[in-house]
Design a binder for these strands. Structure first.
Length: 118
DNA sequence: ATCCTGACCCAAG
DNA sequence: GCTTGGGCCAGGA
């Protein structure tokens, strides 16, 4: 590949790559039986206001990540149809309880401690 | 540069 | 419980 092409990618990539890596670490730190919202993951990773990007990352690549533990504000599952059902099933299997449509956050909210994944 | 979109969020009504 | 409007950010067309 041409040199300037590589440089171009490296110049542009670092930020989002570092960000995604932080998101991944935060997500991996959520223990079984607990959940965190997109916004909380973003903030814990050091990027408040980047909740949409957490979703974008998960949409792209969720292999190797406990993706089911990331939910919308208030414990709402944001995936639609089958995908949503799968997430709910996975959470239930991990012992997470629901109150109607949402995760019982009072019971399963994960509180991030930055030292867990820094 | 502009416009659109998204596994978002939140305050109002 | 809704629905709406606004705000937020980056990536793609």
């Amino acid at each position: 590949m041409m040199r300037h092409e590589l440089e171009r990618r490296l110049r542009r990539a670092p930020k989002s790559v570092a960000r995604d890596e932080s998101f991944s670490k935060a997500i991996r730190s959520i223990p079984k039986g607990k959940v965190a919202t997109y916004g909380q993951v973003a903030a814990a990773a050091g990027y408040p206001l980047y909740h949409r990007h957490v979703a974008q990352l998960l949409r792209r690549t969720h292999v190797g990540l406990p993706w089911q533990r990331v939910v919308g504000a208030g414990g709402e599952i944001k995936l639609r149809f089958e995908a949503g059902m799968e997430q709910r099933t996975r959470l239930v299997m991990e012992g997470v309880k629901f109150r109607g449509k949402r995760v019982d956050m009072a019971e399963h909210q994960h509180v991030f401690k930055t030292w867990d994944f820094e």
